[in-house]
Nucleic acid binder design. Sequence first.
DNA 1: CCGACAACCTGACGGC
DNA 2: TGCCGTCAGGTTGTCG
Length: 270
Amino acid sequence: MPELPEVETTVRGLAAVLDGAVLTHVEPRRADLRRPIPVDLRQRLQGARVTGLGRRAKYGLIQTDRGDALIFHLGMSGRWIIDPDIIGKHGHLVLKTDADRTLVLDDPRRFGSLDLVRTEAVDAFAPFAAMGPEPLGADFTAERLGAALADRAAPIKALLLDQRVVAGLGNIYVCEALNMAGIAPWRAGGSIRQARLSLLVGAIKDVLAAAIEAGGSTLRDFAQPDGELGYFYKQWRVYGREGAACSCGATIKRRVDSGRSTFYCAKCQR
DNA sequence: CCGACAACCTGACGGC
DNA sequence: TGCCGTCAGGTTGTCG
Protein backbone atom coordinates (compact mmCIF):
# COMPACT_ATOMS: atom_id res chain seq x y z
CA MET A 1 0.00 0.00 0.00
CA PRO A 2 2.45 2.58 1.03
CA GLU A 3 3.79 5.12 -1.34
CA LEU A 4 5.16 8.46 -0.24
CA PRO A 5 1.81 10.02 0.79
CA GLU A 6 0.90 7.00 2.88
CA VAL A 7 4.28 7.07 4.58
CA GLU A 8 3.92 10.80 5.24
CA THR A 9 0.46 10.25 6.69
CA THR A 10 1.79 7.42 8.81
CA VAL A 11 4.68 9.51 10.13
CA ARG A 12 2.30 12.32 11.08
CA GLY A 13 0.03 9.86 12.87
CA LEU A 14 2.96 8.31 14.69
CA ALA A 15 4.23 11.74 15.69
CA ALA A 16 0.98 12.49 17.48
CA VAL A 17 1.57 9.50 19.73
CA LEU A 18 5.34 9.19 19.85
CA ASP A 19 6.88 12.63 19.75
CA GLY A 20 8.29 13.36 23.17
CA ALA A 21 7.24 10.00 24.59
CA VAL A 22 9.52 7.53 26.33
CA LEU A 23 9.61 4.04 24.87
CA THR A 24 8.94 1.91 27.90
CA HIS A 25 8.70 -1.35 26.02
CA VAL A 26 10.35 -2.39 22.75
CA GLU A 27 9.62 -5.86 21.49
CA PRO A 28 10.72 -7.26 18.14
CA ARG A 29 8.67 -10.38 17.55
CA ARG A 30 10.76 -11.93 14.82
CA ALA A 31 14.37 -11.70 13.71
CA ASP A 32 13.87 -10.47 10.19
CA LEU A 33 11.61 -8.77 7.73
CA ARG A 34 13.07 -8.28 4.29
CA ARG A 35 16.46 -8.28 5.97
CA PRO A 36 17.47 -8.99 9.57
CA ILE A 37 16.19 -6.67 12.27
CA PRO A 38 19.09 -5.19 14.31
CA VAL A 39 19.83 -7.54 17.17
CA ASP A 40 20.34 -4.64 19.60
CA LEU A 41 17.06 -2.93 18.73
CA ARG A 42 15.47 -3.41 22.14
CA GLN A 43 18.61 -2.52 24.04
CA ARG A 44 19.11 0.73 22.15
CA LEU A 45 15.49 1.89 22.03
CA GLN A 46 13.92 0.78 25.29
CA GLY A 47 14.00 3.64 27.78
CA ALA A 48 14.85 6.24 25.13
CA ARG A 49 12.77 9.32 24.50
CA VAL A 50 11.50 10.06 21.00
CA THR A 51 12.77 13.47 19.92
CA GLY A 52 11.27 13.66 16.47
CA LEU A 53 9.88 11.88 13.44
CA GLY A 54 10.63 12.30 9.78
CA ARG A 55 10.38 10.84 6.32
CA ARG A 56 12.81 10.31 3.48
CA ALA A 57 11.22 9.01 0.26
CA LYS A 58 9.17 5.99 1.41
CA TYR A 59 11.12 5.53 4.64
CA GLY A 60 9.98 6.77 8.04
CA LEU A 61 12.42 7.83 10.75
CA ILE A 62 11.95 7.82 14.51
CA GLN A 63 14.71 9.76 16.30
CA THR A 64 15.64 9.25 19.95
CA ASP A 65 17.54 11.19 22.58
CA ARG A 66 20.24 8.50 22.50
CA GLY A 67 21.25 9.57 19.02
CA ASP A 68 19.63 6.69 17.17
CA ALA A 69 17.20 6.77 14.28
CA LEU A 70 14.86 3.84 13.80
CA ILE A 71 14.28 3.73 10.05
CA PHE A 72 11.29 1.76 8.85
CA HIS A 73 10.04 0.83 5.40
CA LEU A 74 6.52 -0.51 5.00
CA GLY A 75 7.20 -2.54 1.86
CA MET A 76 4.00 -3.56 0.08
CA SER A 77 1.82 -4.49 3.01
CA GLY A 78 3.18 -2.77 6.08
CA ARG A 79 1.35 -0.39 8.41
CA TRP A 80 1.50 0.89 11.95
CA ILE A 81 -1.47 0.12 14.15
CA ILE A 82 -2.15 2.24 17.21
CA ASP A 83 -3.55 0.68 20.37
CA PRO A 84 -4.77 -2.55 18.82
CA ASP A 85 -7.10 -4.84 20.72
CA ILE A 86 -4.98 -7.80 19.75
CA ILE A 87 -1.56 -8.10 18.19
CA GLY A 88 -1.94 -10.16 15.04
CA LYS A 89 0.42 -12.81 13.79
CA HIS A 90 2.03 -10.25 11.48
CA GLY A 91 2.73 -7.74 14.23
CA HIS A 92 6.52 -7.76 14.04
CA LEU A 93 7.48 -4.88 16.33
CA VAL A 94 5.64 -3.63 19.41
CA LEU A 95 6.37 -0.28 21.05
CA LYS A 96 4.79 1.00 24.25
CA THR A 97 5.10 4.50 25.63
CA ASP A 98 5.06 6.14 29.03
CA ALA A 99 1.61 7.48 28.13
CA ASP A 100 0.45 3.87 27.90
CA ARG A 101 0.03 3.85 24.15
CA THR A 102 0.85 0.81 22.03
CA LEU A 103 2.18 0.86 18.49
CA VAL A 104 2.50 -2.23 16.34
CA LEU A 105 4.29 -2.52 13.02
CA ASP A 106 2.22 -5.05 11.10
CA ASP A 107 3.46 -6.40 7.76
CA PRO A 108 2.03 -9.65 6.37
CA ARG A 109 4.29 -9.94 3.35
CA ARG A 110 7.40 -8.82 5.24
CA PHE A 111 8.75 -6.79 2.34
CA GLY A 112 9.36 -3.98 4.79
CA SER A 113 12.50 -3.31 6.82
CA LEU A 114 13.74 -1.98 10.15
CA ASP A 115 17.16 -0.43 10.59
CA LEU A 116 18.79 1.42 13.44
CA VAL A 117 21.25 4.10 12.38
CA ARG A 118 23.18 6.74 14.30
CA THR A 119 21.65 10.14 13.62
CA GLU A 120 24.86 11.53 12.17
CA ALA A 121 25.08 8.57 9.79
CA VAL A 122 21.55 8.78 8.38
CA ASP A 123 22.67 10.45 5.16
CA ALA A 124 25.15 7.64 4.63
CA PHE A 125 22.48 4.96 5.21
CA ALA A 126 22.88 2.86 2.08
CA PRO A 127 19.33 3.23 0.70
CA PHE A 128 19.57 7.02 1.11
CA ALA A 129 23.04 7.58 -0.24
CA ALA A 130 22.18 7.43 -3.96
CA MET A 131 18.66 8.82 -3.74
CA GLY A 132 17.48 11.62 -5.95
CA PRO A 133 15.58 14.68 -4.72
CA GLU A 134 12.38 14.59 -2.72
CA PRO A 135 9.56 15.13 -5.21
CA LEU A 136 7.92 17.70 -2.92
CA GLY A 137 11.19 19.49 -2.27
CA ALA A 138 12.13 22.83 -3.77
CA ASP A 139 15.08 21.25 -5.54
CA PHE A 140 12.90 18.91 -7.58
CA THR A 141 12.46 21.08 -10.65
CA ALA A 142 11.89 20.58 -14.37
CA GLU A 143 15.49 21.60 -14.95
CA ARG A 144 16.85 19.02 -12.57
CA LEU A 145 14.53 16.32 -13.88
CA GLY A 146 15.54 17.20 -17.43
CA ALA A 147 19.19 16.79 -16.52
CA ALA A 148 18.51 13.39 -14.99
CA LEU A 149 16.57 12.26 -18.07
CA ALA A 150 18.93 13.62 -20.71
CA ASP A 151 19.85 11.01 -23.32
CA ARG A 152 17.94 8.33 -21.46
CA ALA A 153 16.21 5.87 -23.79
CA ALA A 154 14.31 4.07 -21.04
CA PRO A 155 10.56 4.61 -20.71
CA ILE A 156 9.68 7.63 -18.61
CA LYS A 157 7.62 5.43 -16.31
CA ALA A 158 10.61 3.25 -15.45
CA LEU A 159 12.77 6.31 -14.89
CA LEU A 160 10.27 7.92 -12.52
CA LEU A 161 10.19 4.70 -10.50
CA ASP A 162 14.00 4.82 -10.22
CA GLN A 163 14.64 6.30 -6.78
CA ARG A 164 17.93 7.77 -8.04
CA VAL A 165 16.00 10.03 -10.43
CA VAL A 166 13.40 11.13 -7.91
CA ALA A 167 12.94 9.53 -4.49
CA GLY A 168 9.56 8.35 -3.32
CA LEU A 169 7.39 7.74 -6.35
CA GLY A 170 5.65 4.39 -6.74
CA ASN A 171 3.46 2.74 -9.32
CA ILE A 172 0.21 4.51 -8.49
CA TYR A 173 1.44 8.08 -8.44
CA VAL A 174 3.64 7.61 -11.50
CA CYS A 175 0.60 6.41 -13.46
CA GLU A 176 -1.45 9.31 -12.16
CA ALA A 177 1.17 12.00 -12.78
CA LEU A 178 1.88 10.81 -16.33
CA ASN A 179 -1.83 10.96 -17.06
CA MET A 180 -2.14 14.44 -15.60
CA ALA A 181 0.81 15.63 -17.67
CA GLY A 182 -0.41 13.95 -20.88
CA ILE A 183 2.70 11.82 -21.33
CA ALA A 184 2.60 8.23 -22.58
CA PRO A 185 4.36 5.92 -20.09
CA TRP A 186 6.50 4.33 -22.80
CA ARG A 187 7.96 7.60 -24.08
CA ALA A 188 11.74 7.65 -23.88
CA GLY A 189 12.71 9.85 -20.94
CA GLY A 190 15.22 11.83 -22.95
CA SER A 191 12.70 12.66 -25.67
CA ILE A 192 10.39 14.75 -23.51
CA ARG A 193 10.77 18.48 -23.98
CA GLN A 194 11.26 20.88 -21.11
CA ALA A 195 7.80 22.45 -21.29
CA ARG A 196 6.24 19.01 -20.92
CA LEU A 197 8.59 18.17 -18.06
CA SER A 198 7.40 21.30 -16.29
CA LEU A 199 3.86 19.97 -16.51
CA LEU A 200 5.07 16.61 -15.22
CA VAL A 201 6.87 18.08 -12.23
CA GLY A 202 3.78 20.11 -11.38
CA ALA A 203 1.58 17.04 -11.72
CA ILE A 204 3.84 14.98 -9.45
CA LYS A 205 3.80 17.65 -6.75
CA ASP A 206 0.05 18.17 -7.09
CA VAL A 207 -0.94 14.51 -6.93
CA LEU A 208 1.32 13.82 -3.96
CA ALA A 209 0.10 16.88 -2.09
CA ALA A 210 -3.53 15.99 -2.76
CA ALA A 211 -2.99 12.44 -1.54
CA ILE A 212 -1.27 13.64 1.62
CA GLU A 213 -4.14 16.02 2.19
CA ALA A 214 -6.62 13.19 1.77
CA GLY A 215 -4.57 11.05 4.14
CA GLY A 216 -4.49 13.90 6.56
CA SER A 217 -8.26 14.01 6.58
CA THR A 218 -8.28 10.45 7.88
CA LEU A 219 -5.56 10.94 10.48
CA ARG A 220 -8.11 10.69 13.21
CA ASP A 221 -8.80 7.16 12.02
CA PHE A 222 -5.15 6.43 12.47
CA ALA A 223 -5.41 7.16 16.16
CA GLN A 224 -8.62 5.28 16.76
CA PRO A 225 -8.52 2.19 18.92
CA ASP A 226 -9.21 -0.08 15.96
CA GLY A 227 -5.92 1.18 14.61
CA GLU A 228 -6.92 1.12 10.98
CA LEU A 229 -4.84 3.49 8.96
CA GLY A 230 -6.27 5.99 6.55
CA TYR A 231 -4.79 4.35 3.49
CA PHE A 232 -6.80 3.48 0.42
CA TYR A 233 -7.29 6.87 -1.00
CA LYS A 234 -8.85 5.98 -4.31
CA GLN A 235 -9.61 9.10 -6.23
CA TRP A 236 -7.49 7.81 -9.08
CA ARG A 237 -7.89 9.09 -12.61
CA VAL A 238 -6.42 5.99 -14.26
CA TYR A 239 -4.89 3.65 -11.68
CA GLY A 240 -6.95 0.50 -11.25
CA ARG A 241 -9.55 1.76 -13.74
CA GLU A 242 -8.93 -0.43 -16.78
CA GLY A 243 -11.99 -0.40 -19.03
CA ALA A 244 -13.53 2.64 -17.34
CA ALA A 245 -13.98 5.94 -19.12
CA CYS A 246 -11.32 8.61 -18.93
CA SER A 247 -12.61 12.14 -18.44
CA CYS A 248 -12.02 12.61 -22.20
CA GLY A 249 -14.41 9.77 -22.96
CA ALA A 250 -11.83 7.26 -24.18
CA THR A 251 -11.38 3.91 -22.45
CA ILE A 252 -8.59 3.56 -19.91
CA LYS A 253 -6.09 0.88 -20.86
CA ARG A 254 -3.73 -1.34 -18.92
CA ARG A 255 -0.45 -2.84 -19.98
CA VAL A 256 2.27 -4.72 -18.16
CA ASP A 257 5.89 -3.63 -18.24
CA SER A 258 8.57 -5.45 -16.29
CA GLY A 259 5.82 -7.29 -14.46
CA ARG A 260 4.03 -4.18 -13.25
CA SER A 261 0.70 -2.80 -14.37
CA THR A 262 0.54 0.54 -16.10
CA PHE A 263 -2.78 2.33 -16.50
CA TYR A 264 -3.14 5.09 -19.06
CA CYS A 265 -5.40 6.86 -21.52
CA ALA A 266 -4.07 6.50 -25.08
CA LYS A 267 -5.97 9.59 -26.17
CA CYS A 268 -4.77 11.94 -23.42
CA GLN A 269 -1.23 10.59 -23.16
CA ARG A 270 1.21 10.73 -26.05
C1' DC B 1 26.19 1.08 -17.70
C1' DC B 2 21.51 -0.44 -18.75
C1' DG B 3 17.23 -2.81 -18.59
C1' DA B 4 14.39 -6.99 -18.08
C1' DC B 5 13.16 -10.21 -14.81
C1' DA B 6 12.94 -13.26 -10.76
C1' DA B 7 12.78 -13.51 -5.97
C1' DC B 8 11.29 -12.25 -1.47
C1' DC B 9 6.14 -13.31 1.23
C1' DT B 10 1.02 -13.52 2.45
C1' DG B 11 -3.68 -12.50 1.54
C1' DA B 12 -7.67 -11.32 -1.27
C1' DC B 13 -10.44 -12.37 -4.99
C1' DG B 14 -12.61 -14.63 -9.04
C1' DG B 15 -13.58 -18.87 -11.55
C1' DC B 16 -14.78 -23.59 -11.45
C1' DT C 1 -16.99 -25.06 0.55
C1' DG C 2 -12.63 -25.50 -1.35
C1' DC C 3 -8.94 -25.47 -4.59
C1' DC C 4 -6.29 -22.95 -8.02
C1' DG C 5 -4.54 -19.23 -10.53
C1' DT C 6 -3.78 -14.32 -10.53
C1' DC C 7 -2.73 -10.09 -8.63
C1' DA C 8 -1.03 -6.54 -5.22
C1' DG C 9 1.07 0.22 -3.67
C1' DG C 10 8.54 -2.18 -3.20
C1' DT C 11 13.32 -3.30 -3.39
C1' DT C 12 17.35 -5.90 -4.68
C1' DG C 13 20.28 -9.02 -7.06
C1' DT C 14 21.34 -11.49 -11.30
C1' DC C 15 21.80 -12.07 -16.04
C1' DG C 16 22.29 -10.87 -20.85
